[in-house]
């Protein structure tokens, strides 16, 4: 009788181990593929893409994404002779047929300018050049005289961009600079490429801090994203959010700036004054689309605390701002992202 008992226990033991082995095997065979990660430089900044797809073509897709980035860079860099936008800026007010991607972004930026009553303005190219912020060389960044600024402001105004089908005309000498929006657009383009390849693919694209989520980490976890401390070092986060999807972008005063007589001047200009507004050190925005996240931050840096809340409601974005005293402000939508 005891012998039978022992045999039964033995059989059960073997059965258990077999079940566990099968379970482990099933889990292993169902595990999501590893992330293919590639870093590179585009849009004058570092780019990182992590991509996982069950279709096993992650590397090819990421390479295609980098190729696309280079193409976009060649369209949207206004200071690179030969780029599509350079040609438009030098078209002397004549109608010019432009790349559909440039047309898209131009139309979006003009609409956004209208929606923010001109606080966001894509035609500040002349002012950017005047301050020298079009170059990467800080020795060329300088505080212009009030007279020079007033003069350059004459050649600014989003109403000077006219459309006719796929043709564009720039009036009144304006120069278009899509710096506040092109990276965000590129994020959207790359996300669409990733999703077109495989709807259930996951990962992210990070174009110099403009981030778009392709899908949750390992399919079910959020990506933890640090918000850069505007007065800290490069890897110093001041706050965190958790994203399963969507995009996040930051506009700030801490990379391209000069300090003259104790006052900070940076590269985001108020189209009405020709100077930067000194409301915020940075504004970080979460929204469905990269172009919106990017544009919103730029507009908010100019519009300041009196407009940011109203705009956030209108555009349905989550934001976190840090003002010049270092005080952090978040809207209620933002708080939803602070929990994993």
């Amino acid at each position: 009788m005891q012998k039978i008992q022992r045999i039964r226990t033995l059989i059960l033991s073997i059965f258990t181990l077999a079940v566990v082995a099968v379970v482990i095997f099933v889990v292993i065979s169902r595990r999501p593929p590893q992330y293919y990660v590639r870093r590179g430089i585009a849009f004058g900044t570092d780019v990182k893409i992590a991509y996982a797809t069950r279709k096993k073509n992650a590397e090819a897709v990421v390479n295609a994404m980098f190729d696309e980035l280079n193409k976009l860079n060649n369209i949207f860099n206004p200071y690179k002779p030969g780029s599509e936008l350079y040609k438009l800026n030098h078209s002397n007010g004549k109608w010019m047929e432009v790349d559909p991607r440039l047309l898209d972004v131009l139309k979006y930026s003009i609409k956004f300018a209208r929606d923010t009553n001109g606080d966001f303005d894509p035609t500040l190219g002349r002012v950017v050049v005047l301050w020298g912020f079009n170059t990467d060389n800080p020795h060329k960044w300088k505080l212009p005289s009030p007279y020079e600024i007033a003069n350059a402001l004459k050649d600014v105004g989003y109403r000077n961009v006219e459309f006719d089908g796929n043709r564009v005309r720039l009036l009144n000498n304006v120069w278009v600079d899509l710096g506040g929006i092109a990276k965000g657009y590129a994020v959207d383009v790359l996300l669409a490429m990733a999703k077109a390849n495989d709807k259930s693919s996951t990962g992210y694209v990070d174009i110099g801090g403009d981030i778009g989520i392709i899908g949750p980490k390992y399919g079910n976890q959020p990506w933890k994203i640090g918000i850069r401390n505007p007065r800290g070092t490069m890897n110093d986060a001041i706050s965190y959010v958790y994203l399963y999807k969507g995009t996040i972008a930051t506009s700030g005063d801490y990379e391209r700036y000069i300090i003259v007589n104790g006052k900070r001047y940076y590269h985001i200009f108020n189209p009405k004054t020709g100077y930067s507004s000194n409301y915020f050190e940075s504004v970080t925005t979460i929204s469905k689309s990269g172009i919106l996240s990017d544009a919103f931050g730029t507009a908010a840096m100019i519009g300041g605390p009196s407009k940011i809340g109203k705009w956030a409601n209108e555009f349905g974005v989550a934001y976190m701002s840090i003002n010049e005293e270092g005080k952090i402000q978040k809207n209620s939508l933002w708080k939803d992202y602070e929990k994993p």
């Binding site: 258990t16 079940v19 566990v20 379970v23 482990i24 099933v26 889990v27 169902r30 595990r31 079910n220």
Partner: peptide, 13 residues
């Protein structure tokens, strides 16, 4: 789901 597998395998062992 993988979570389920982990729970089940853990529980059984």
């Amino acid at each position: 789901s993988p979570t389920f597998m982990m729970g089940a395998a853990g529980s059984i062992t």
